[in-house]
Design a protein around this nucleic acid. Structure first.
Length: 295
DNA sequence: GTTTGATGTCGAC
DNA sequence: TCGACCTCAAACG
């Protein structure tokens, strides 16, 4: 579930918890137990994101950075008192701890953390709440050199001000692979996933099957700019909404309307041109597009 | 009760 | 190109 906007939102959430953090760390599931013992109670100096990668920098002698990649179904769950950040669940659409009820989670005063699910890889316990990580594809303690190795494999992140969209334009222009594959390639541009791919290619009118070398520089710049716009909105709102208000049909013809132009909208009529949205396979992932609007 | 799928990535053929 | 993997709610019987 998580595309880059979710990971940046997580970094903001950790920043909102405080700036002198020394969370207790544990691994109820056990697979991160040895590393959790190393960072337990240590100063969590900063949390930041690049694409879909989350980094928790610890102020420890030597290099200690927790690197987390949620993969397809990892998630972070935040639960605590009113003094903690709002309860949230970032990642795979699940309702962990739902049975506890929000009132129990939010009571002020004495704080009893909920029993972790047995699959929680890493629990960070703060004075007023907990952050539980479940199901990540990667959760590892690494050093600065390994961080550099990861960043070297990643293209520019549209959500980072220190990234340059021209790097994306250059990489795309020099490839014969379809632009739909390039937008999903994290070494070309870091952060977009299947939804932003489908939606931004629709919004810029580009066919996902067009080879990168045959997409004009202007259209590639427009595409990168649109990734910036829509993903920034995703960070703010906590969910992906890419459809413009003017394109939301009123009255709504179906409950799925009002969020996406093409993602998961195969067989339905395009709100712009009326063509039937198609779903097809591209390199093993479902691809959605409008044959009438994208060329 | 069992199967399926999901906003992802890697490595072996 | 294919399967494996990290997890669990929804869909299917």
């Amino acid at each position: 579930m998580p595309e880059g906007h979710s990971i940046h939102r997580l970094a903001h959430t950790f920043a909102a918890i405080g700036d002198d953090l020394r969370p207790r760390a544990s691994s109820p599931q056990g697979r991160f137990a040895a590393s959790a013992a190393v960072i337990d109670g240590q100063h969590l100096r900063r949390t930041w994101a690049w694409g879909k990668h989350l980094f928790l920098d610890y102020a420890l002698a030597g290099d200690h950075i927790v690197h987390v990649h949620l993969g397809l179904y990892g998630s972070w769950r935040f639960v605590g008192t009113d003094a903690f950040v709002a309860p949230s669940h970032v990642g795979a659409p699940r309702l962990a701890y739902e049975h506890l009820g929000e009132k129990v989670e939010r009571v002020a005063g004495a704080w009893q953390p909920p029993e972790p699910r047995p699959t929680v890889r890493l629990r960070l316990e703060f004075p007023h709440g907990i952050a539980d990580l479940s199901g990540p594809a990667r959760c590892e303690l690494i050093d600065d050199g390994e961080v550099d190795a990861i960043l070297n494999r990643l293209g520019p992140d549209p959500l980072r001000a220190d990234c340059d969209g021209e790097d994306f334009v250059r990489a795309a222009r020099s490839s014969r692979r379809p632009i739909g594959q390039l937008v999903m390639d994290q070494s070309v541009v870091a952060g977009p996933g299947n939804i932003y791919r489908a939606e931004c290619l629709f919004r810029t009118g580009i066919s996902p099957w067009r080879p990168g070398e045959r997409v004009s520089v202007d259209r590639l710049r427009a595409l990168y700019a649109d990734l910036c716009t829509t993903m920034s909105a995703g960070v703010r709102e906590g969910r992906i909404v890419t459809i413009e208000p003017a394109d939301i049909l009123d009255p709504l013809p179906d409950p799925e309307a009002g969020r996406f132009y093409v993602y998961h909208r195969d067989q339905r009529a395009c709100v712009r041109c009326g063509h039937r949205i198609v779903a097809e396979d591209m390199a093993g992932r479902r691809l959605f597009r409008c044959p009438g609007c994208q060329h």
